[in-house]
Design a protein around this nucleic acid. Structure first.
Length: 653
RNA sequence: GCCGGAGUAGCUCAGUGGUAGAGCAACGCUCUCGUAAAGCGUAGGUCGGCGGUUCAAAUCCGCUCUCCGGCUCCA
């Protein structure tokens, strides 16, 4: 091969030998005209780059279009620049912070000085963006020295960019310029602004410069853009649909929970009868799983003396997010922010032998945390919640197997509900103040959870700085209806609390040893899990969870006796049902049951009465046929016992 | 806690300074009905709260509470 040629490997694994210094655009053209037309950027050995930059060496490449994440990333990054240009034209005094692409769109943090941006400004900015886009100008990459970069931002008096540049190495600083707007930027960008056909500025928010509360708060404008107007309409429609799953709306509507800020308090959910049924079913499910795995259940009080939390370290570390202490008889008590310290005291109540380990103490433990007012959110972020908590006290030799067991249990939970979770290993960072315990313990614990995760075949990402103060975690995250991620289940390894509480066991060598603790909560909290569950199923719960499993609908009053007969038979088998004896037409009763998302409706009239059958409707599917009462009972008992998801239910009669 | 938005009947919403409205739900009566809305009627409000401007405030102004979307935080 001549030195003038390089080999490019395409995503399908095929190689392409091609002249050196070829640009991404030329590569795309060499593949197909269609691809060249759609191309937004190119990924070269994992780095996303502009299409018009030459490729100088052998590389794995991928041409990015709107259909790839890298392509959309490029598109939205360029959109953020266009947003900034529009703002600069309309508000010349605005100073720009950072403006990255995000999962669904982009944002730009802007210092508007004294101007307070309102939603009506947003539509003006949107129009300006589209106007600028139509000029179809290119994004030009300009390499600058650090000195030039600093000089530029001194001229325009932008302290934010100056701060950013000061942290950069000379020689790797680039600007991008489109039209009249130049921005410090690593790139890459799309070929020209004209590709951006539709834009929607979605949200206006305050955002601290560099995420620091002590810094100035800038105005963050969120937006999303598309290469076709139709895609924007589709996106907005999907957003509307997603909102219908919102547990804050569905929860109260379905009688699951309510919040009474006036007299009970914000963030203190009240579980309504339907929600309580659901929650008790969830607890029963977890208890059964735990009994099979050798857990022992305990119950501990909602409060404890403040000293308990001084020993555990919760009090000094998390003073700000606790309810104020309760003073009684010269003693201070705290509403418990965690259950662990209570459990540790139970552990310490007896002399423990290595033969007793692992000791697995479980509790549906209520905790109280004073979350900031702006942070409260339906059932997913509250000030009082109940963790499906457990602490496993074990020897070092047992640790890895126990971690794997808890991961296994957590997986069972998510499989049961058909949930897809993202897994995150939450490690510590360099900020020693945030964490307790010896660094060597931390390294050890991080290694152990990683090994256990690998051996269980988990796909995870690692997040530094997300650990709890006593140890690293495996966090199981799930998305809500509008794509926000919430931590649900967690498995944590803890070497710190055994030291703080001086926990010991007697080993085979008759010496005292320190146990290790695993903290775990597969649901996380009953509240958050229920909130997520509502959104996951959009209120159409599997039969075993549905608070109201069926409605019995007599055709007319004449069939009420037979309806009550069926109701009695079903109730004897533990079915949760209601008889709709209102003087409404069948259609109306069906409609009401459908709206209440009741899984089954039994229509009972003359035919059914004389045959001893029930005519069955399934929520969202309609009439599924006629069954003998006994066959129907068998069918639903199988459905409940198998914890079948709505999508798994066989509807053939 | 911070930034922006919003609070009118149980729900969805109309009402821009002059007597608080609609649909659905609820309740009553009539109808006794075959697979997604029967008909008629009744009741329901401190227009989130407090204060101010005005002859007059749901409407204008100030403060405050709560909720929504973000930020920060998150044991």
């Amino acid at each position: 091969m001549s030195s003038e040629q390089i080999t490019l490997t395409l995503p399908d694994g095929s190689d392409k030998t091609i002249n050196k210094e070829i640009t991404g655009r030329e590569v795309a053209e060499s593949i197909s005209a269609g691809l060249a037309r759609e191309a937004l950027s190119i990924t070269v050995n994992g780095e996303i780059r502009d299409l018009d930059r030459p490729i100088t060496q052998d590389a794995e490449i991928r041409i990015n279009t709107w259909d790839s994440e890298d392509g959309r990333y490029t598109f939205w990054h360029s959109s953020a620049h266009l947003l900034a240009e529009a703002v600069q034209e309309l508000y010349p005094d605005a100073k720009f912070g950072i403006g990255p692409p995000i999962e669904n769109g982009f944002y730009y943090d802007i210092d508007f000085g004294n101007h307070s941006v309102s939603p009506s400004d947003l539509s003006k900015i949107e129009e300006k963006i589209l106007e600028l886009a139509r000029r179809k100008v290119s994004f030009d990459r300009i390499e600058v020295s650090k000195k030039e970069a600093l000089a530029h931002y001194r001229d325009v008096d932008n302290e934010y960019k100056l701060e950013l540049i000061n942290e950069l190495e000379d020689g790797e600083i680039t600007f991008y310029k489109q039209g009249n707007f130049t921005d410090l930027c690593r790139g890459p960008h799309i070929p020209n602004t004209g590709i951006i056909k539709a834009v929607k500025l979605t949200t206006l928010a305050g955002a601290y410069w560099r995420g620091d509360v002590k810094s100035k708060q800038l105005t963050r404008i969120y937006g999303i853009s598309f290469p076709k107007k139709k895609l924007l309409d589709k996106y907005l429609h999907q957003l509307e649909e997603a909102k219908k799953r919102d547990h804050k709306k569905l929860g109260p509507q379905l009688g699951i929970y309510m919040i009474d800020p006036e007299l009970v308090g914000s963030g203190l959910p009240l579980w309504l009868p339907n929600g309580t049924v659901l929650r008790r079913e969830l607890e029963k499910f977890m208890r059964d799983e735990q009994i099979r795995r050798g857990y022992k259940e305990v119950i501990t009080p909602h409060i404890a003396k403040i000293d308990l939390y001084k020993i555990s370290g919760h009090y000094p570390y998390y003073k700000d997010s606790q309810f104020n202490p309760i003073e009684v008889d010269d003693e201070e008590y705290l509403l418990k922010p965690m259950n662990c310290p209570h459990h540790h005291r139970i552990y310490s109540s007896e002399l423990r032998s290595y033969r007793d380990l692992p000791l697995r103490l479980a509790e549906f433990g209520p905790v109280y945390r004073y979350e900031q007012s702006g942070e409260l959110h339906g059932l997913t972020r509250v000030r009082h919640f109940t963790q499906d908590d457990a602490h496993i006290y074990c020897t070092h030799d047992q640790l890895k197997q126990e971690i794997k067991n808890t991961i296994g249990l957590t997986q069972v939970v998510f499989e049961t509900f058909g949930m897809e979770v993202e897994i995150r290993l939450s490690y510590r960072d360099d900020n020693d103040e945030k964490y307790g315990g010896e660094t060597e313990y931390w390294q050890r614990a991080q290694k152990e959870i990683r090994e256990a995760s690998d051996e269980m075949g988990l796909q995870y990402t690692i997040a530094e700085g997300e650990a709890s103060f006593y140890g690293p975690k495996i966090d199981f995250m799930i998305r809500d209806s509008i794509g926000r991620t919430w931590q649900i289940g967690t498995v944590q390894v803890d070497y710190v609390m055994p030291e703080r509480f001086d926990l010991t066991y007697v080993g085979a060598d008759n010496d005292r040893h320190r146990p290790v603790i695993i903290h775990r909560a597969p649901f996380g909290s009953m509240e958050r899990f229920t909130g997520i569950l509502i959104e996951h199923f959009a209120g159409d719960f599997p039969l075993w969870l549905a608070p109201l499993q069926m409605k019995l609908i007599p055709i007319s009053d004449a069939h009420l006796p037979y309806t009550n007969f069926c109701a009695k038979k079903l109730q004897e088998r533990g079915v949760r049902l209601e008889v709709d004896s209102r003087s409404e037409k069948v259609g109306a009763k069906i409609r009401d049951a459908e709206n209440a998302k009741v899984p089954y409706m039994l229509i009972l009239g003359e035919k059914e009465e004389s045959d001893g059958t029930v005519s069955v409707r399934r929520h969202k599917h309609g009439d599924i046929g006629t069954f003998s009462l006994n066959d129907f009972i068998t069918k639903i008992e199988e459905e409940v016992a198998g914890k079948l998801l709505p999508s798994q239910v066989e509807l053939n009669s």
